[in-house]
Design a protein around this nucleic acid. Structure first.
Lengths: 336, 336
DNA sequence: TTTGTTATGGGGAACGTTCCCATTTTTGAA
DNA sequence: TTCAAAAATGGGAACGTTCCCCATAACAAA
């Protein structure tokens, strides 16, 4: 079907040299070929419209210059920026990235790992679902994790400082004068440690605030989850004056539910989220949140993987936790 | 560095057969190998942890089972859903998709096309920037376009019915009783036909509404663009009672600017967007918009490319224009 | 026994590079 | 002019598959 593309042999014939010489020219070797023949070869390349066949190169060199990026779902507003950070970094180094959506599904994750092995991709950046440290090791493909990387002692990882984010958010609320602060903690499939709650409790202790367990409600990471949680909080005999949500999606749900209940935000109720997704800036009023360095997370993960691919070894796996920063918009103010 | 993986030769040796036989087993040939040896081979495969080397397969068969997806920017909220539609469709058929961000940049686009050629990807789905119909033809790689595909007579394309979307939006506004309707038309780098305005004018004619050119303002596709345009509209001696924005991003900017000017939406001002991006549902009040079938666009584009890769030929290129549907939320109501 | 047929298996070239190891040509000093 | 060293070039194997074609075995029919 597809018209056959010329090979180095064709180029060699046209230029009147050996295929070895052509190979030297296209792989940019400096010393081994005279200026004169180099030009003849380049002319032949242009004439034929030759494009190097990377497949053949890969077979010979065992490098594909393709890496995989496995994330839960590119439609989840947290991920596009991370993905872009990863891609920009790799593209600048001549790599192509294959995007894989795991949907938090162990089977899909396993398939993706198989794809990586079969295709001899040079590495993978992944937000792990079910795979264990040892399974990942036995993959024997360079890998860098997105997330805390807690359960993966042998791998580099890049995540955000969740603890720090919670402290930052709560400090902001407390500094504004709030004393009854609700927490909408997200619960996800993979039962991970409840850092959000832990920090919340700790912060109360540090600030001498009394801790009211009824102000803590758990909800699935969705807008309706956030909305339901907010309504539950509002139905309390003594509702909170401010609410911290585990992420922006929950916060937006909470915001909408709060407004739906007739409250004015931030006058009657302050709300703060975590992440700073695109939609956080477009609510009315725009959402105050702790912005996570999503793009930068991608960049760092890619940089680490690149090092690993190139054989740079650190004596101990790198565990990067990037700090977020408070993005004050208009959903927080002192309590009425 | 990376421990060498076993090959069919290793499997053959262990199973006591020839590499040809192993090849038959792994490519799932039915007839040519007895049940007995098939099992011996499979046992050897499991024992060695053998994974077929797709690179070698690709070199031999000239198929990579990788396709490229070139879009402007995955961080632009319109694209993640399209990308997901493309990916899900390809993944179900055993293909991997490489994501490429063109940033509306002709140079980047050219590089991406080169990547596709060099890596012998099986095809590409792309939202074209500067490339012409003929250049794309000379690529001689199966390609399907995202968008109207107007300037690409030789290629299949999948887009959304923009004209229809504008009519739908305006009809909604007119049915609500609006007679002074503003239009915020986006302008993009690539100077394409101004469909939005054309439909707008036509709709006015059809409905017997008078056309006031001062109600049409052009703005770059960004929130600030939408906000600036809104302010301009509001400063008119006789401002509109409703505004149609070229997409949701503009609409959100307009909404925020309108509220910033002290107007209540939708009581004082109705606003409608086009696209139905994630953030459209999270504004306050949530944005009424004409939802484009983003995921479906991706699915159809992928399906078309798959056909092309498999050699299914239509006598004439397919030009799909999928209809959007009105998503009524809370930014539109009858004029005061 | 011979011949034909079917089932099963193997040998080896080919895909388009890279790279090791010659071989040839050029250069420059003696 | 000669010769060694350096520079330029080429031959051919190897990477791990696929696939064409041939070999062998088993068995039935004549």
């Amino acid at each position: 079907m597809r018209s056959k593309q010329p090979t180095i042999k064709d180029v060699a014939r046209l230029a009147g040299v050996s295929k070895t010489t052509v190979g030297r020219v296209i792989s940019g070797e400096q010393d081994r070929v005279s200026e004169d023949t180099r030009e003849r070869v380049n002319a032949a390349i242009r004439m034929l419209g030759y494009e190097r066949n990377v497949i053949a190169t890969s077979l010979r060199t065992d490098q594909t210059f393709i890496v995989a990026l496995s994330i839960p779902d590119i439609m989840n507003p947290f991920w596009p920026e991370v993905a872009r950070g990863v891609q920009d970094t790799f593209e600048a180094q001549g790599y192509t990235v294959a995007l894989l959506n795991s949907d938090w599904d162990a089977t899909r994750e396993a398939n993706h790992l198989q794809t990586v092995r079969r295709n001899r991709f040079d590495g993978i950046v992944l937000n792990p679902i079910k795979i264990t440290n040892n399974e990942l090791k036995s993959l024997s493909t360079p890998a860098v994790l997105l997330g805390s990387g807690d359960d993966y002692p042998d791998f580099d990882s890049v995540g955000s400082n969740s603890t720090g984010a919670v402290y930052t958010a709560l400090r902001h609320l407390i500094e504004l004068g709030h004393t009854r602060i609700g927490l909408i903690a997200g619960v996800s499939q993979r039962s991970r440690r409840d850092t959000r709650y832990h920090c919340y409790a700790d912060m109360h202790y540090q600030s001498g605030l009394s801790l009211d367990e009824s102000l803590v409600v758990r909800a699935p990471y969705s807008r309706t989850g956030g909305a339901d949680a907010m309504r539950q909080l509002l139905s309390l005999p003594h509702p909170p004056t401010a609410v911290l949500a585990g992420n922006d999606i929950l916060a937006i749900g909470a915001l909408l539910a709060g407004q739906g209940a007739g409250l004015t935000v931030p006058d009657d109720l302050s709300i703060i989220g975590i992440d700073d997704i695109y939609a956080a800036a477009t609510t009315s009023p725009p959402l105050t949140t702790v912005a996570k360095p999503k793009y930068e997370i991608g960049v760092q993960a890619a940089a680490l993987l690149l090092e690993k691919i190139r054989g740079v070894t650190h004596d101990v796996p790198q565990k990067l936790l990037l700090d977020g920063h408070l993005q004050v918009r208009q959903t927080t103010s002192p309590p009425a």
